[in-house]
């Protein structure tokens, strides 16, 4: 019984966390991209334009929820939620402090990789139910891309299972050693790149591609349902950043107590910023290059990392 209550509580907490992260993340991304493109970014509302996202949220909530005439109404309505819910779920297995993760499970690593895979179905259904060529192409592209990049992404975190001898994130955080950082450098690069690709963010935003597919699978969405897609994107960014910061950099082992949590938040923000930086710096990839990178570059890199760690483990 208490398990169910806690499940609801942590589910809501994850939703609120993503909402806050999206509010701050959108503002930060607009400021950051503005700096890259030598402009100012939002500046009218609040200090340094901080309230701009809040005002945009009010606008999005009040906007008419347009449903295309030929759309499959039921599927069109629930598709954003199928995209969002798994990403919120994946946040509960992340260790937020030494010895604390909302859902402490022995299959945490696998859970973090497997549950967001469900959101691919939401993306495809969104593209499909719109009955729109742009949206359909976006949906098919998203499915191909997300399936391909799941493989290197999962392989890139497997070295932790070898090193810590456990799939429980808390065990990995507890077993963390400083020399894991140089040892797992290749794995970290693979994790970062494939996470960006898994989120359909630039330079891997072919499913959305505003200049060729308008907005891809969510071209027909507006108002609050469009906002849920955006929240899912920023939620995924948040999840990739906090999970990467907690596992690859071991902030809780470097600094004890509350200082470790502060370091963890800073590291997560830095990782999220690096992922935004990539979006605003690199041009969009071609579809054939995209598949080539996943199968011919990232997957072999992840396998090399696995072999490397496999060679080190017996000497520990």
């Amino acid at each position: 019984m208490s398990g169910l209550v806690w499940g609801v509580v942590w589910g809501l907490a994850a939703g609120v966390l993503i909402a806050i992260a999206a509010l701050i993340g959108v503002w930060w991304e607009r400021k950051f991209s503005g700096a890259i493109q030598m402009r100012i970014g939002p500046q009218e509302l609040g200090p340094a334009g901080l309230l701009q996202t809040l005002a945009d949220t009010v606008k999005l909530v009040l906007k008419e929820d347009i449903i295309p005439g030929r759309a499959d109404v039921t599927v069109f309505r629930i598709a954003p939620l199928i995209v969002f819910a798994p990403i919120a779920m994946s946040l509960v297995v992340v260790p937020y402090a030494a010895g604390f993760a909302p859902l402490d499970t022995s299959v945490g690593i696998l859970f973090f990789m497997a549950v967001p895979a469900v959101s691919v179905i939401g993306v495809m259904l969104a593209g499909w139910s719109s009955r729109n060529t742009y949206a359909s192409i976006g949906g098919v592209r998203a499915a191909a891309q997300m399936i391909s990049y799941e493989l290197p992404r999962t392989l890139s975190v497997l070295p932790f299972v070898l090193l810590a001898g456990s799939m429980r994130p808390l065990d990995i955080v507890a077993a963390w050693q400083w020399w894991w950082v140089p040892l797992l450098a290749i794995g970290f690069v693979v994790y970062l790149i494939s996470s960006v690709a898994e989120l359909n963010r630039g330079p891997f935003d072919l499913p959305e591609a505003e200049s060729e597919l308008v907005a891809g699978y969510f071209a027909d969405y507006s108002g609050i349902r469009w906002a849920i897609f955006m929240m899912a994107e920023y939620g995924g960014l948040l999840a990739a950043a906090v999970f990467g910061a907690a596992l690859f950099f071991g902030p809780f082992s470097l600094l004890p107590g509350a200082a470790g949590v502060v370091l963890f938040v800073i590291l997560s923000a830095v990782l999220a910023t690096v992922m935004m930086w990539a979006k605003w710096t690199f041009p969009r990839m071609r579809p054939d290059q995209l598949m080539g990178v996943a199968w011919k570059v990232l997957t072999p890199m992840a396998l090399v990392q696995l072999v490397l760690v496999g060679a080190v483990v017996p000497w520990l």
Partner: peptide, 15 residues
């Protein structure tokens, strides 16, 4: 089950 069937097989099927 989630990883292989929902995230993999079902998506390939729809694809």
């Amino acid at each position: 089950q989630l990883f292989v069937y929902v995230g993999g097989v079902l998506v390939l099927f729809v694809f």
